[in-house]
């Protein structure tokens, strides 16, 4: 046989990656650093919300108090904003679902003319910088009288949610075996019946994930609502803008915790749906 191929020289560059112990230690450090980076800012907010008195340079409040919570929860501006945010979000999600789910089904199963072009068009809202879109939309709203209205806000929120919903539902419907639907038809179900009895239940996990993200997107929506909602329709994020700018630290902190709570709750509740593929579908594919 031909002359031997020389053995590999010791790779100096990556001995530290290949050593399992060093790698484990580095990973541990990295995880700790990330925990600090992600967790501590949030923790600080929580601390501020319970701070009776917190002067520099103490690292934790010198006095604890619940009075800011009391102030916030009794403030009509705050309760109004909360109410508005949490009533707009379900409306937005529902409307988007009503419009996007049929579209998703059509894209996945039916013969839609110019299907590819249309799907491409659905990506445009993501490709054009959102704030530019909102500003232009505000100009349009002025002209058609949607500025400073409830529905103006709803329709604006739907821009973000529509993209998610359509793409996720298309992918979800496509992943369902068409034979299942055919079997239902074969047993005598009309297309509508087959859809509601077979397809929709199977698509539920994907639709729930999409709805979750839509809900969160609507609650989170600040910049567009700021432009088209003032002065009468102040949602929670918009109110937070003003609170932050006016330096009322504990009040803003309480408000932040209030605003973040539902999202975090949803995170816990939705744990079982949050496999990599679903979240990837929710984010990466859109």
């Amino acid at each position: 046989m031909a002359a031997q191929v020389p053995a590999l020289p010791a790779i100096r560059l990556s001995w530290w990656i290949d050593d399992a112990r060093i790698r484990r230690m580095l990973l541990r450090l990295f995880a700790a650093a990330l925990a600090v980076f992600i967790g501590i800012p949030l923790l600080t907010l929580v601390l501020w919300s319970f701070a009776g008195e917190w002067f520099w340079p103490n690292l934790i409040p010198t006095q604890w108090s619940l009075r800011w919570w009391q102030e916030v929860l009794e403030n009509p501006r705050v309760t109004n904003a909360m109410f508005l945010s949490f009533t707009i979000a379900p409306v937005v999600t529902l409307l988007t679902a009503l419009v996007a789910i049929p579209a998703g089904y059509a894209f996945a199963r039916l013969d839609v003319p110019f299907r590819r072009t249309l799907l491409l068009l659905f990506l445009i809202p993501n490709a054009f910088p959102r704030i530019g879109l909102y500003v232009s939309l505000a100009v349009l709203y002025y002209q058609i009288g949607l500025i400073d209205t409830y529905w103006g806000i709803v329709f604006l929120h739907m821009i973000g949610t529509m993209v998610y919903m359509t793409w996720i539902t298309t992918a979800t419907f496509r992943s369902i075996d068409p034979h299942l639907e055919e079997a239902a038809r074969d047993a005598g179900a009309s297309p509508l019946r087959a859809f509601f009895s077979v397809v929709l239940p199977l698509a539920m996990p994907g639709i729930i994930v999409a709805s979750l993200f839509s809900f969160l997107a609507s609650v989170d929506e600040a910049q567009g609502t700021l432009i088209v909602g003032t002065p009468h329709y102040i949602t929670m994020p918009v109110l937070l803008y003003t609170l932050i700018s006016s330096f009322q630290r504990p009040v803003a902190a309480v408000f932040s915790v209030l605003l973040a709570l539902p999202s975090l709750l949803l995170l816990i509740v939705a744990q079982r749906y949050l496999h990599s593929e679903y979240v990837a579908a929710g984010l990466g594919r859109v």
Binding site: A2, V5, P6, P9
Partner: peptide, 19 residues
């Protein structure tokens, strides 16, 4: 790939691959 990892000269890599 494996040959290049071992830093064999280019002509030898091509030679061995071809053979």
């Amino acid at each position: 790939f494996g040959l290049r990892l071992r830093r064999l000269p280019k002509t030898e890599v091509e030679d061995r691959t071809g053979r």
